[in-house]
Design a protein around this nucleic acid. Structure first.
Length: 214
DNA sequence: CCAGCGATCGCCT
DNA sequence: GGCGATCGCTGGC
């Protein structure tokens, strides 16, 4: 398979523009056991200082520092005491905008992932941001790496174009702040797309209206 | 299929 | 000290 690493210029734009453009792109992970290639099927945009749901909303900290840097780098964070999540930093340096990678479909090296996640159904191998990181062996040691480096251990590459009519949008998952912003993007019909769960605040106010599948 | 819940700890208030 | 950009298991229908 021919893998063409994504250019930084593609990512040095607002997250809201980058997010849908990343659907269908490939995530390439080189591991001691071999190479895993996956197709991005679900992402979410986070818009830093103007977005109450962003880790960067209250400014720069040790944890979120990478988001304030150059586009194309990985922001990996640890949450709930056990899960990692992977973001692609977007925009210009100093602007903390990023795209959370929520789900991928494994296209190459699925046996490697199956052995990493024994007993898990194929559709769940990388369904959800925590599972995605588990599947591709991503943790904080990869925080800050350059996803545009063709020689890097984890990188983004071009994939087959996705027809615009297949792209769906909806509220972000698990977010209670700014729950009205439809900044989640996914490819219609992909089995690895998350089941929709609203944030606690939204749930309380009965804002659940869609299932996240259509 | 869905709702509920415990796990588990770094981060920020 | 409280709470997550979550997950996997349980129990109910």
């Amino acid at each position: 398979m021919r893998l063409r690493t994504l250019t930084r210029a593609l990512l040095a734009r607002p997250a809201l523009e980058v997010a849908p453009a990343l659907l269908g792109a490939r995530l390439v992970r080189d591991l001691p056991e071999g190479r895993v290639v996956a197709r991005l099927v679900e992402v979410e945009a986070y818009d830093g200082g103007s977005d109450p749901a962003s880790h960067a909303y209250r400014g720069r900290t040790a944890r979120n520092a990478v988001m304030f840097g150059r586009a194309g780098h990985a922001y990996v964070y640890f949450t709930y005491g056990m899960h990692f999540c992977l973001n692609v930093v977007c925009g210009e340096p100093g602007v903390a905008t990023a795209v959370l990678l929520r789900a991928v479909a494994i296209t190459d090296g699925v046996d490697i992932v199956r052995s990493r996640r024994a007993g898990i159904r194929d559709r769940d191998l990388a369904r959800g941001p925590g599972r995605l990181c588990k599947a591709l062996a991503i943790d904080r040691s990869l925080d800050g790496i350059d996803l545009c480096d063709p020689a890097g251990p984890l990188r983004l590459a071009a994939g087959e174009p996705v027809d615009a009519s297949a792209i769906r949008t909806g509220p972000r998952v698990g977010v209670s702040q700014a729950a009205d912003r439809e900044w989640r993007f996914w490819i219609d019909g992909e089995p690895a797309v998350s089941a929709y769960k609203s944030g606690t605040k939204a749930r309380r106010t009965r804002l659940i209206g869609e299932t996240g599948r259509s």
